[in-house]
Design a binder for these strands. Structure first.
Length: 552
RNA sequence: GGCCUGUUGGUGAAGUGGUUUAACACACUGCCCUUUCACGGCAGCAUUCACGAGUUCAAAUCUCGUACAGGUCACCA
């Protein structure tokens, strides 16, 4: 085909395009940003639930754009209408919102570089395809699924590379006449790239994360436009990221193998290529096989984003975990800087893992504890309440009714430099502080306490009568020791251990009895703080309850 | 099978040719602190970096081979 014929073909295939390439390009001017600013994008396809890996890549997009004062936009990649699921798009936007990963631009956020939904951009892709046909870099291909399948079988047998290329690309050099005949006969077709590559050439490429890589040049006549006129991911990616002036495409490792194709498309279309940063997959040990593998939506519902929400893992703690996966030096920095947040950290591609990253639940758990330990009681209260309103409305009611008490309980031992780390999830607050709520405490009625140990309840009653609740912690403990001594108990466990026969016990035994009576358990945060919050009236009420239970 | 990428302790990992007798964190164990539990402190936990060969005065770090693992090879993204 000569150029005139190709123009005729292009017009025949795409007769009614509204805008020329020149007009399209005009609508997407350079962005007015500082020189080093990164423009990143999250491009989910609304075909299922969002999982941890998706979240990680969106998180990376966000932090890199934020720290370089760039742009992070959301683009819905819905070119495959068949796989769309109902509510898929809304699900994506709401998950991003819930997880506090907020684009600065894009679908549902607005911006000048839209539309940010690929299904609304079909004509744009077609305009570029039309150009490629004129330039002899794309062609209509009429091969049927059966033909392609038989070629594949043959290639498998011959042990050659699988795909449509070279001699297998039978429709590559059809004449205009032949094409017209096929179209008139009602044959359906796709548009394929007329790949100018030679697989014997080696191309080198530098990934922002993985570093230098070598590949054979791309030589497949990859499908660019599907039978229904919509683009494949590859075409849409290259055109959109060109027009939207994306500087860095941060995406999953699974895309590495299409780098040669994408690079070739940038070249063929005359675009400046983006920089790529391929994130190592989050992996998990498969329970059945014992092998490490990438997390999957189907096999690991656990890694669906809902899990975190439902179990009350704080979003910020999850961010912390994503940050430790993103940059291997983050965790150490965070621990060394107790007063700083993620936004103060500078992420770099160099510090990003190259191989797979195993999901470590223990680590997440620990990060959550650190997160809670750094929060004030008020904050924990508010966040827990917000969570409970969604997932445990009964507890939300209780929290609201006991707001002041709860905050005081949550603040116990928060003043010092070494805060407690006993909560890792919102859902644990209820269990950890059930004794803070009279209603629960009465219900529980020492259910989890074993009564094999007998306490001198008269003595404890005397003690509780004698102790004032207006003391400092030091004064209280010193008085408690005095009380212990007066009543035949050792002042310290050490003294007791030296000469157990001379004492009935030691001060710790008295504290233990009080602790069991007031909280129903052997372990608790600072006892005197609890006593102060409860007040005398509730203290004696609990003592009476305890007596009744023991009497049974 | 082709192509690409990995492989460091119980776990996540730092490490880019020589102050590495391999950081840090999690987990675990022991001790200390202590009214309990946490928190915190100290100590222990890889004489060795999948294996084999090579380059070098010097290798976890560079090269090659082997094994294993992961990814990918759709009119899905």
């Amino acid at each position: 085909m000569n150029k005139e014929e190709r123009i005729e073909l292009a017009d025949l295939l795409f007769p009614n395009l509204e805008n020329s390439i020149a007009e399209i390009e005009k609508k997407y001017p350079e962005r007015n940003l500082p020189e080093d600013a990164m423009v990143t994008r999250y491009g989910p396809s609304p075909t299922g639930n969002v999982h941890l890996g998706n979240l990680l890549s969106a998180f990376c997009d966000m932090v890199y754009a934020r720290e370089s004062h760039g742009v992070f936009f959301l683009r819905i990649e819905d070119t495959d209408q068949k796989r769309m699921i109902e509510g898929g798009i809304d699900n994506i936007t709401s998950v991003l919102k819930d997880f506090d990963i907020i684009p600065t631009e894009g679908y549902s956020y607005g911006g000048e570089y839209g539309p940010y939904k690929q299904s609304e951009r079909t004509e744009i892709y077609q305009a570029y395809i039309k150009e490629l046909i004129i330039k002899d870099l794309a062609y209509p291909c009429f091969m049927s699924a059966e033909e392609i399948e038989s070629i594949r079988l043959e290639q498998e047998k011959e042990k050659t590379k699988i795909g449509i290329y070279g001699i297998y690309a039978t429709d590559r050099d059809l004449s205009l006449k032949e094409i017209k005949e096929k179209i008139n006969a009602g044959k359906e077709y796709v548009i394929r790239l007329k790949s100018p590559g030679n697989a014997n050439n080696i191309i080198t490429f530098v990934d922002e994360i993985k570093g230098k890589m070598k590949f054979p040049e791309h030589n497949m006549d990859t499908i660019l436009l599907k039978k229904d006129g919509t683009p494949t991911y590859h075409l849409a990616h290259v055109i959109d990221d060109h027009l939207m002036h994306t500087t860095h495409v941060i995406r999953g490792d699974e895309w590495v193998s299409s780098i040669p194709l994408h690079l070739q498309l940038f070249e063929v279309l005359g675009f400046k290529p983006v920089k790529y940063a391929h994130i190592a997959p989050i992996t998990i040990k498969d329970k059945e096989t014992g092998n490490t593998r990438k997390i999957s939506k189907r096999k690991d519902p656990f890694f669906g984003v809902k899990y975190y929400e439902e179990n009350g893992i704080p979003i910020e703690a999850l961010h912390l975990y994503l940050a430790t996966i993103t940059n291997t030096n983050f965790e150490e920095w965070y621990l060394a800087n107790p007063d700083k947040t993620i936004a103060d950290f500078t992420f770099t591609f160099e510090k990003q893992a190259v191989g797979g990253t195993s999901f470590d639940e223990e680590k997440l758990n620990n990060l959550c504890k650190t997160y809670f330990s750094r929060k004030k009681g008020e904050e924990i209260y508010e966040e827990t309440l917000a969570w409970a309103q969604k997932h445990d409305t009964d507890y939300a009611r209780i929290l609201e009714e006991n707001k002041e008490d709860m905050i005081r309980f949550l603040n116990i031992e928060k003043d010092g430099p070494r805060p407690r780390k006993d909560i890792s999830k919102y859902s644990e607050v209820k269990e950890e502080f059930y004794y803070a709520i009279d209603e629960y405490f009465e219900e529980e009625n020492y259910r989890n306490t074993s009564f094999d140990k007998e306490y001198d309840l008269d003595l404890i009653e005397d003690y509780l009568n004698s102790i004032s609740l207006d003391l400092t912690n030091e004064e209280w403990f010193s008085q408690t020791k005095d009380f212990a001594e007066k009543n035949g108990y050792a002042k310290t466990p050490k003294e007791y251990k030296k000469d157990p026969d001379s004492y009935k016990g030691h001060v710790g035994d008295i504290c233990e009895a009080v602790r069991v009576i007031l909280t129903g358990r052997l372990k608790s945060p600072d006892l005197y703080s609890i006593m102060k919050i409860l007040g005398k009236e509730r203290i004696f009420k609990r003592l009476d309850m305890y007596k009744k239970v023991v009497a049974k």
